[in-house]
Write a protein that binds this DNA or RNA. Structure first.
Lengths: 337, 337
DNA sequence: TAGTTGGATGGTATCGATAACAAAGGCGTT
DNA sequence: AACGCCTTTGTTATCGATACCATCCAACTA
């Protein structure tokens, strides 16, 4: 029986309730001044009519969307997921919604994505990483909203940033291994040039090794990022063939580190007795696998939370809001001696 | 020097270019009829002015958002991430954007989320699971857009569904184990009542065991979903204490299965010689850990892709679009004999 | 040559909510 | 009683793009 009819609008509710559309509008804002009886009557009528608030109209008129645009390299990465989780947690207090996009570790794709996202008129934009195409950078600079770069310390920040030095964390790992008397240390990472954070970590490895006067030739490029467990295992196989005397390996993430670990297990190599392994990211797997993995905790969720409160401060017009330097933490476990 | 000025609109471009706003609008649609010269001039002027298309205005007037709303239990789950990836892949061909929300495995939260998402006027909504609060169900039924339920076979579908029987997959796993002469089989899952898919899997376990006339008391509730690796390990520890003679364990996911596996390794139990382990979801870890995990591949990415093409068919007004029954596949690996 | 077709462009009204301003009524104060 | 103040509600115009319809002109047909 029911006809195809247009969904009800605030005007319909106003008619039914006998008030003006403006009053209906007020009934849906929590803070606005309206008598309790009127509001109740309006909300009841809305429920009866099956009214659904139209955010598109509200967005246009009020020039507010309550969107925060976020780009991350991949949806399927516990670290970035944690960051988004922390951000979401903080923003939901303000009823803001995250508009999420995936760059697939590709700066061209990031550029497209940023353009797409800005069209939706977000209140702010959060991007992962501090390197972008020239056009993406221009888009962000010209955007009339706060811009926050995360998971990096940008050479030239566009707006604010919440991050850490990716080269620095690997330097720290190298220093730790050297202190533990390792010298034939290898690095398993992604292909250079795609994942900028991965490249930075590789760079940090090279710098630290040179500083210690150690051989920097033990470098395995495991393919385009993200490096999977499987790719980590394959890379470990190649490493062991090319450099059988390697004492320790630093992997670009815990996932590739775990893959590398399993490759050792299949070959009957003992970790850490025969070879040591370090990862990055403090993924759950590193804390539970046998042996557990030495890693670096980048405080992914904290990055999200701090980005969120930084954002809220900026949107509230607070002065003197600064950048946030995250301090990743080395966690020594069983995979290194 | 630069003043705080309002971002340019199509009217500004029209003024600069000497055409009507309507023509400017046409220049931004790929299919519309407009001469090449005019379009080029408009796009150039837009670039010069730093114009950013305003989707909120477009959405309101055209009553189209190119949004597809999607709810998943958690962002940090490779299975759901794959489904979203497959969906995204399919929809991006139509330039549609996914509006993602997380229910945190909570039907109340799902209800709130659905209401939030519908306000954004998506073209369609995809929800994970076939069970919802009464109000959420009503919201979905009344929504003037296609509704697709995934990862389940709903008792009463709201619109269409793309999924499989969660009870069925575990029955299959039990049958396989029984065929391999196991009889003291346990199940490690989440608390009942929160995660409906997890509960369904538990139910499938009970049914299958009864059918085979086997003892159904070996049930470990590992806490509220999602069950982490750590919780899987803890559950395994409890299982071994309560039922030391258990021959095989089915875990609600590969992650908990891996956790259980590590617990066995820590206790010096051999898998599968002393105890066998089965998981669910065909996560990467199951294919690379030592020993590799017997699991069930639910074709997560395929669910996303098929949801996407089903959606496009519906939006194109195709008749006779049917539901999609996914056939999960048992993958026997080293963790069962 | 007149008539027709179709590509390109313009004019106007509109999507639905709400910002900005106005006003009505109740209450207390002097 | 007169005044001001606060609470509650109403009126009007508007956010920016575009659906819809009208118009113009070149090219082509009969």
């Amino acid at each position: 029986m029911s006809q195809i009819r247009k969904p009800p609008t605030m005007a319909d509710i106003a008619r039914v309730t006998g008030v003006s559309p403006m009053t209906v509008s007020r009934a849906f804002k929590t803070d606005s001044l309206i008598s309790k009886e009127t509001r109740d009557a309006i909300l009841k009528a809305a429920e009866d009519l099956g009214y659904v608030f139209d955010a598109t109209a509200s967005n246009l008129r009020s020039q507010k969307t309550d969107f925060v645009a976020v780009t991350i390299p991949s949806i399927n990465n516990a670290n970035f997921a944690d960051t988004v989780g922390g951000l979401s947690e903080t923003l939901s207090a303000r009823n803001m919604q995250i508009l999420l996009g995936y760059t697939n570790y590709d700066m061209q794709e990031e550029e497209r994505l940023i353009e797409q996202l800005l069209r939706r008129k977000p209140e702010a934009i959060v991007v992962t990483g501090g390197k972008h195409t020239a056009r993406a950078r221009k888009l962000l600079e010209n955007a009339p909203i706060p811009v926050i770069e995360t998971w990096d310390v940008p050479a030239e920040p566009i707006g604010h940033f919440v991050g850490f030095s990716n080269a620095g964390v690997v330097r720290e790992m190298v220093d730790h291994l050297v202190r533990s008397d390792y010298s034939r240390i290898a690095f398993i990472g992604g292909d250079v040039g795609r994942d900028t954070r991965g490249s930075d970590r590789r760079q940090g490895f090279l710098e630290a090794m040179r500083q210690h006067g150690l051989d920097t030739s033990r470098l395995i490029a495991a393919g385009p990022p993200p490096i999977s467990m499987r790719e980590g295992a394959n890379a470990m196989a190649r490493l062991l063939e090319q450099f059988p005397d390697t004492e320790a390996v630093i992997c670009v993430s815990d996932l590739s580190a775990f893959g590398a670990l399993t490759e050792c297990q299949r070959r009957g190599l003992r970790v850490p007795e025969d070879i040591s392994i370090g990862g990055f990211g403090d993924y759950e797997i590193g804390s539970i696998c046998v042996p557990t993995l030495t890693t670096i905790d980048a405080h992914a969720r904290d990055i999200g939370r701090k980005t969120g409160s930084l954002l809220l401060d900026i949107l509230d017009g607070k002065q003197n809001v600064g950048d946030v330097l995250i301090e990743p933490q080395l966690i020594v476990r069983e995979s290194t001696r």
